[in-house]
């Protein structure tokens, strides 16, 4: 419990900043929503001018763009990118920072097992992600109800936002698993940005192609298709299972490697 609280304390600042950034981003987009609706025809024409693959890559669906859910699912891909970076940063740093900040010698000679250390840290990171997503969801719900021009399905809106939590969970787990393979991870940002942007670009390329059901497994960003969610009020089970598989495998690997890892002296 003491380790968990200590971790929470050390993460709270950055989490707060990420929450504010994501809410601010959503607020900026929502602020132009009414303008878009009032000139729907012109906006559709503008977007229609983009080639089809570009629209697909950016997640733009012209038909539904002026409905609140359609609009939100377009801007949501940028929010997702933000959230993925946050989660990946958190995951990559949570275990590796003890070695980077040279405090491993302090923590790991305490009468606790390595797996207890991993558990406390993972739980703290998980808590921070939960907090991020809950606060973000409350904020965007409020914003959506303020700018809406007609009623929308609250259930679908919730399902869309819940994918944020899944995506974060996946990237958190990937981040932790990546970090345990480094003897000493000097800097977290290049690794986490590299992986997140890499997968995001791959996701965009996959989206632009046709017949991509199999290719979509490569990028977690493509596990949750907004058009599908809006149409079916649910998720595609195969991708949901793939996401869960990644999380379980990554966390299992993290435990196994971290428990066996040598913690070398600083020099």
């Amino acid at each position: 419990m003491n380790m968990y609280l200590h971790e929470l304390k050390s993460m709270r600042r950055s989490t707060l900043i990420w929450i504010c950034a994501m809410i601010a981003l959503a607020a900026i987009y929502f602020s132009v929503y009414r303008g878009i609706v009032s000139d729907a025809a012109g906006f559709k024409r503008l977007l229609g001018g983009y080639p089809e693959p570009v629209r697909a890559a950016l997640g733009i669906s012209v038909d539904s763009i002026t409905s609140l859910l359609g609009f939100y699912s377009m801007i949501f891909s940028f929010i997702t990118l933000c959230a993925a970076i946050q989660a990946m940063n958190l995951g990559t740093s949570v275990l590796s920072k003890e070695v980077r900040e040279r405090t491993a010698d302090f923590l790991l000679v305490k009468p606790v097992s390595r797996s207890a250390v991993v558990s406390a840290k993972l739980l703290a990171a998980f808590t921070m992600i939960m907090a991020t997503d809950v606060i973000y969801y409350l904020a965007v719900s409020l914003m959506a109800s303020m700018v809406k021009t007609s009623d929308y399905s609250g259930r679908i809106f919730f399902l869309i936002n819940l994918t944020l939590f899944f995506i974060q969970l996946i990237f958190l787990a990937i981040g932790v698993a990546v970090s345990v393979f480094f003897a000493k991870l000097k800097s977290v940002i290049p690794v986490s940005l590299g992986v997140v942007f890499g997968l995001y670009m791959i996701g965009a390329i996959i989206a632009a192609g046709k017949d991509n059901a199999a290719a979509r497994f490569i990028s977690p960003f493509k596990y949750f298709d907004m058009t599908y969610i809006i149409k079916h009020t649910g998720y595609e089970p195969s991708y949901l299972i793939a996401g869960a598989g990644i999380v379980i495998a990554a966390i299992a690997i993290s435990y196994i490697i971290y428990v066996k890892k040598d913690i070398h002296a600083v020099n």
């Binding site: 050390s10 900040e101 040279r102 405090t103 010698d105 302090f106 000679v109 305490k110 009468p111 606790v112 002296a265 600083v266």
Partner: peptide
Amino acid sequence: KKDVGYLPSEVFYY
């Protein structure tokens, strides 16, 4: 390890 006190050669803390 609860009975062990360790002083490392170089001390780094949070």
